[in-house]
């Protein structure tokens, strides 16, 4: 069973540091698995698989627009975080399971698809493109890191998913999200044509995560 922390709006860098602390505590068995639910201010993150060409503005331009650019250690290419986007960081100990990275991704997708279904949205997977899609537009991005547990067998996860709830999608035009040119991004509010209550989304996501991961 994991515990949920709802952190509200928090800056990227301190949250990332906090994730690393939690990974350590989970590894040492001091605390239970944690699921962090939060929002970030405008931030562009570059995963390990990033190509600089997928950043469409110069560093100065991003700064001028009030967007932080951070280079980080998750898998995947460039992505954008910002207000109205629900970010989830599951810090889970994947102990005795075979460290099958991809089945973990599929499980996160499944949880998000389940949560979206509560709002009448049919999320889908797209072959070769991790994430959750609605009509060939990405509504949720996923990128994770598997930390080798120091004190036991297996892995501990960090980073996670970003679900566009009421995200201002114009910010995505400053990057090539995940390096994928041919498909667009969307949000729950765009699909439903109205603003969506973030607390309700957090409730559904939490429930769906519990269903898939416990």
């Amino acid at each position: 069973m994991f515990e949920v922390q709802r952190l509200g709006m928090v800056a990227y860098q301190p949250t990332w540091d906090e994730q690393k602390n939690i990974v350590r505590s989970v590894d040492e068995g001091k605390i239970a698995d944690q699921l962090l639910l939060l929002e970030h201010p405008h931030t562009v993150t570059m995963g390990r698989g990033s190509h600089l060409s997928n950043l469409l503005l110069s560093t100065q331009d991003y700064k001028a627009k009030g967007i932080n650019v951070v280079e980080i250690d998750r898998g995947g290419d460039v992505t954008y975080h910002g207000p109205g986007q629900l970010v989830g960081y599951p810090i889970f100990y994947l102990g005795d399971q075979k460290h099958d990275a991809h089945s973990y991704l599929r499980d996160i997708e499944e949880a998000l698809i389940l949560a979206l279904s509560s709002f009448g949205i049919s999320g889908e997977r797209m072959e070769k493109h991790t994430g959750v899609w609605v009509n060939e537009e990405k509504v949720a991005a996923i990128g994770v890191k598997f930390h080798k547990a120091r004190n036991k067998k297996g892995y501990i996860t960090s980073h996670g998913f970003a679900l566009n709830v009421n995200t201002d999608l114009r910010y995505f035009s400053t990057i090539v999200p995940c390096g994928i040119l041919e498909y667009g991004v969307t949000s729950m509010s765009r699909i439903l044509g109205k603003k969506v209550d973030m607390d309700m989304v957090m409730n559904e996501v939490e429930m769906a995560m519990r269903e898939i991961f416990t």
Binding site: R48, G75, G76, A101, H102, Y104, K145, H147, Y155
Partner: peptide, 9 residues
């Protein structure tokens, strides 16, 4: 890195 997962070996 494989797909969207960065794994420590």
């Amino acid at each position: 890195e494989t797909d969207k997962v960065n794994t420590e070996i």
